[in-house]
Design a protein around this nucleic acid. Sequence first.
DNA 1: TTAGTTCGTCTGCCGACTAAACAAACTAGA
DNA 2: TCTAGTTTGTTTAGTCGGCAGACGAACTAA
Lengths: 406, 406
Amino acid sequence: MQTGPQPADFADVRATNLAVVLRHVRNHAPCSRADIAAATGLNKATVSSLVADLIERRLLRETGLAEHRIGRPATMLVLDGQPYAAIGLAVSADQLTAVAVDLAGEQLLSWRRTFPALASSPGKAVSAIAALASRVAGRVSSQNRQVLGLTVGVPGLVDSDGTVRLAPNLGWRDVDLRADLVHALRDPKYDVAVDNDANLSAMAEHRYGAFVGTSDLVYLTGEVGIGAGVIVDGRLLRGGRGFSGEIGHVQIDPSGPRCPCGRTGCLEAMAGIPAIIRRVLPDAETDGPITDFAPEIDEVVRLARRGDPATVDSLAAVGRHLGHGVAILTNVINPDVVVLGGNFVPLAPWLLPAAEAELAARAIAPDAGGCRIAASTLGSGTAAVGGAARALATVDAGHLPPPPPH
Amino acid sequence: MQTGPQPADFADVRATNLAVVLRHVRNHAPCSRADIAAATGLNKATVSSLVADLIERRLLRETGLAEHRIGRPATMLVLDGQPYAAIGLAVSADQLTAVAVDLAGEQLLSWRRTFPALASSPGKAVSAIAALASRVAGRVSSQNRQVLGLTVGVPGLVDSDGTVRLAPNLGWRDVDLRADLVHALRDPKYDVAVDNDANLSAMAEHRYGAFVGTSDLVYLTGEVGIGAGVIVDGRLLRGGRGFSGEIGHVQIDPSGPRCPCGRTGCLEAMAGIPAIIRRVLPDAETDGPITDFAPEIDEVVRLARRGDPATVDSLAAVGRHLGHGVAILTNVINPDVVVLGGNFVPLAPWLLPAAEAELAARAIAPDAGGCRIAASTLGSGTAAVGGAARALATVDAGHLPPPPPH
DNA sequence: TTAGTTCGTCTGCCGACTAAACAAACTAGA
DNA sequence: TCTAGTTTGTTTAGTCGGCAGACGAACTAA
């Protein structure tokens, strides 16, 4: 059955235009009503009405300052970050990260707690996640902010219902995380969602990263595995069942090493963080349930900085494999930029040249289809920030919080 | 810059709802105004107004027949195919195919003419294409039909301006086909577009194929090369510059044969039609500018039907390579179905089992992410039909032809 | 014939955008 | 200081299009 756009009515027009104004203020703050009218093509009167509505909903506020050019001074508008916040929470093999972000993009808090996923059952994990989410929600509420939504990022396959079908690095299979969380949080008023961590990181990059607004963007996670979050035409690519972006287990080399997934030569097995560490630091322990690679990555960076030839060569080789993976994405999806995240970021200076060369050689489109490779600039917690961004994006898309009952 | 939805006004509401009604009639013809109101949620009065508008524009008509259940009989509505038609034209290495399709999906004509692309300059090609398009448009006009649009499908990289950046099998590079055609056709009133043939075939499959309306669908061409047309969430995936779907030159096996593109082990070199023929019929001539493989494919089918072991094995091997390619698509995009087209269709009975097994083994998502592989049922000329579908899809999306001037 | 049902239109209403006029608030220059 | 010019944002009147409900039309069933 074809699922075209649903019938529209006035409420849709209003919601669309409210969202247009809201986005314009986000992108051009501070700006005046007249600016908005000129830029969007909406009538001045309409803009006034929309702005009044948004101020009543406490999404915008007047700065009080005015711009004094010739003519009547303009009263400037900015996003009002105060009354709302969205919560993002990322699950990894060794820790939980929670952030709260306000509407203006201000990060209100960032909490971490260790969480040995493999050592605890999914049930306990749900409790831990719910407890952390609940504490964050409490803190946010105590600041008189309304929680707009909670999104949990998980490194694994998440279907469209919010069930984690498979998360090898957490030891999970068929965990209905969304429903369990809703239950544990006792049917919170805010919206709860679960998504793949790469998808959320891509949203964070799309909303807050160095390539804000690039409409075709891929984020590659560099944690235990390699996952891709794909944004196409400004929207997240999910595929039929929500299992898109699993580039980590695409075969790069049939004669490559065995991957824990059972296949051989997966991108993850060739260019994943454990593979890098094994290659550069043969003595390091990487087979067990080790999940925090920071010390080893620091050591690799140290060696590379010192110019250690074996290390530099190894990183170049890994960069070539990554470039191979990016070339597959480029040939199939043709993104404008592929952002390397996680532990790839500190290694980027040594990975990128080789990756770019490999991409150029393997991409069929001229000029690599215009695709660049870059390291993320968002720092750690990208997936959690992306979780918050997901809820905020629904506001941008027109799902505004209701106006106060007056 | 973020390019969210544009400001909406009444015209958009009207256009959206007109399109909703039009699509409903397409999918549920014949149906009554009351059916439409019940199914779409639109008010009965609104539906009456919309239907009147569509009848005036001659997009719908009343059948005259009525359905006699209890109560007042319903006057049934159907699409009015008569007044409009869209033209699709596909360029391949050896011929031009042109079709005209009316709004109801009726194929009005299908013309072929030989066209030795490699033996003629792009300029001559433009003339030949324009001449054919012009003749088709003339025929359509002589039936008192208005031409809604012309779309030309080209086996190669086409950017968003309609410039063919690279089409190796035609010997083209940087041919501004759209502009040249508009010029050669002397600024026709209808809309002219150029697109990749795989993209157009995917649109045809999405609109007329066995998986109508499947919102995540990939079409794989089986001509000289292998290209993918990708539909995600009901929309064509184009990527940043329009160069998506080039799965043919993704490397499947580093130790594979050399590909004319200069790389080695490309999917195209392993599982393309010339590779199949070379493998099964070592004596056949496939290196020259041979472009019509029908006789050889017939021979391969004959051998396979007879159960010739070498042939069956070869086809299974090719099927595995195709399954490998489909697995890449599945892991990255997660489509619901991958449709094999072109010369793959007659070979499908021998290709599919191996391809499906390989897909199941390589896909990371459980149950291969729900992805099936199937042979196209649309027959030859799929790309041309898709070209017509593109113009018709713009009508479905709300770009209706203007009402008669009264 | 009557009751009941369904279809499609008609009427009145309301919400949302537009255009144009206008008041407010400022700068620039005489 | 005063006036002309400019820009902002609100007000007013108008149009458009969807909605709810009433209503006549056309039919079946008993």
